[in-house]
Amino acid sequence: MISTKYTEKKKFNKQEIDRKWWEVGDYFRRNSLWLLMYCTGCCAIELPPSMTSAYDMERLGMGPMATPRQADILLVSGYLSLKTLRRLIYTYEQMSEPRYVVALGSCPINGGIYHDSHPVINQLDQYIPVDTYVAGCMPNPESVLNGFVDLMEGIKNKTANGWKKYHKNYDWYKKNQFDVLGEVVIDDEFHQ
């Protein structure tokens, strides 16, 4: 039974209206994720089967994109050497927000089989925030797609907020990057 008592009409303040709009945006964002495939390592070989007719990534609204400005997801597929990490950070900072990072394979998690190698970093999330990890060496297409669905859930539940973390802890991330990469002085003939 509906109460007949007078209740004051609920008024939305500005933050709540912003939140509502943000949720509407989240619907569009999670249903149209464009990948920037930064094929650093061997896990990149799992992407062709997950894109083509066997697993068909496009039915989730995902697809490859050509440049970092257009993309939403930075897909790190495999191990990262120091030289690659520098370019990865450049790429990440070029992407337009909101941006998400998905790391494939066990190498970005703890180094994987390259845990004792001199040029390969052990943990990716020390340098840029990672939203979804897909473990496995290498993960098969089902788990890759499962990882993307996890990311969609994360966007829906507002847990995939790595780009906000990057803004908030910018100094910490920058310190880690400088510790491992050194100053931005590259002394070879391609940069002179």
Partner: peptide, 18 residues
């Protein structure tokens, strides 16, 4: 392939605007 939803292009455009 299964192909995307028929309104996928609208989602793409509105996402880009957001």
């Amino acid at each position: 392939r299964h192909g995307p939803r028929w309104y996928q292009e609208f989602i793409d455009i509105f996402k880009l605007l957001s």
